[in-house]
Design a protein around this nucleic acid. Structure first.
Lengths: 207, 207
DNA sequence: TTCATAAACTAAACATCGTTCATGTCAATC
DNA sequence: GATTGACATGAACGATGTTTAGTTTATGAA
């Protein structure tokens, strides 16, 4: 591939990026429901039909936003993944995950709560999603290697349960915030405590 | 209130019921996305405008469907709630919950995964939702009364965690079925084991 | 420089959506 | 029998995503 693309391809890429940037801004400012082809077009300085020269459909734009969101989530998790102690790292990962969902609720919905997108994001196609899960799974493998898991506890199953726990909390908080009054910190403290107690060979301590 | 309503009110109620029945059929057969005012109207033998004499909006129809779905979920949970042993009852409740979501995925989405409805369903207004949660909370209070919970474990917090675990599993299964390959039974066995280990004073046994 | 060709873009339209409004119809009441 | 009010409709309005046909613009060769 050439070091610098042809000016053609370059401008095409610019157009895609500008469209996605405006789309993202609209979602952040007005919610996913306001993401309209006509609105995107006007914001990006195009006619509605021009968007179809760069994206096949509104769904493809949404999918691209979801992909970018997943990469942002991965970055947040990687930052939290630097914590040394495995148990403290789990809590940091949970809080980073919840922080992303709170900062960009519509993006989180798009990635993990819409039928069409989640499958694509996690079905193996999206490498950021795979990397994010690997980050979580790594903690449990580390714990297993250190012999800190109770007998019969499988690291991959625990990682899945951890993710289910965090996603369950976040997703209910997103849709039933009235019912799920306590903040994530409290919910996680309670949920992770039960989880860690059941998982570990020894008591989790106060990490 | 009169034992039998006036024929006026009676026909009005019939119309409402017929509209809701057709709406439910459309959701079950073609998914929530196919729930269109014009489609409902045609199925119920009305013009589109006539629906607005019985419901304020499409959203109100959807809300009514969600309410009915919540009552159906409550019935399923009540059936599972008859199991005598508390731990076996928890597993039965989880499987009944997952069974409802598998049988009516669009209804489950509507109740617990759509922004506008979940709040109304669980914000205290929906008594079926409150009863369903009380059914779960009761198990943990029963365990607490029997002194089977570990020190410091609060029944209401455990009930919430249990619900989060089950909902997290079900909702991810609904959106990321490709990634969450194992059936609910396996997922629950793993997740509930960790949970129960952490919750109980003694080991959970093989309930 | 000129011209042909392909890419980029637009204006207008199509089908569909939720919703509203003026109009009509028909049964119950005075 | 006339009147009133609930019930229902047809036609429309403003949006939506998307397509088509036509127009402008940039590119690469003569």
């Amino acid at each position: 591939m050439p070091a610098t693309q042809s000016p053609r391809a370059r401008r095409k890429e610019d157009a895609r990026a500008r469209i996605l940037a405006e789309a993202r801004r609209i979602v952040l400012e007005q919610g996913f429901g306001a993401l309209t082809m006509r609105r995107i077009a006007e914001a990006a300085g195009y006619s509605p039909a021009a968007l179809y020269l760069h994206f096949a459909s509104r769904e493809e734009i949404a999918r691209a936003l979801g992909s970018a969101g997943m990469r942002a989530l991965l970055e947040a998790l990687e930052e939290a993944g630097k914590v040394a102690d495995p148990l403290a790292r789990l809590k940091a990962l949970a809080l980073a995950y919840a922080g992303f969902a709170r900062a960009e609720p519509d993006t989180y919905r798009l990635i993990f709560m819409e039928p069409a997108f989640a499958a694509a994001a996690l079905g193996g196609k999206d490498e950021a999603g795979a990397a994010a899960f690997a980050l979580i799974a790594g903690v449990f493998e580390e714990l297993a290697a250190a012999g800190r898991l109770r007998a019969g506890a499988e690291p991959s199953a625990l990682a899945l349960t951890f993710w289910i726990l965090v996603h369950g909390t976040v997703s209910l908080k997103l849709t039933c915030s009235a019912f799920l009054a306590p903040p994530e910190e409290v919910l996680f403290a309670s949920a992770l405590d039960s989880f860690l107690y059941g998982m570990l060979r020894t008591e989790p301590g106060q990490a």
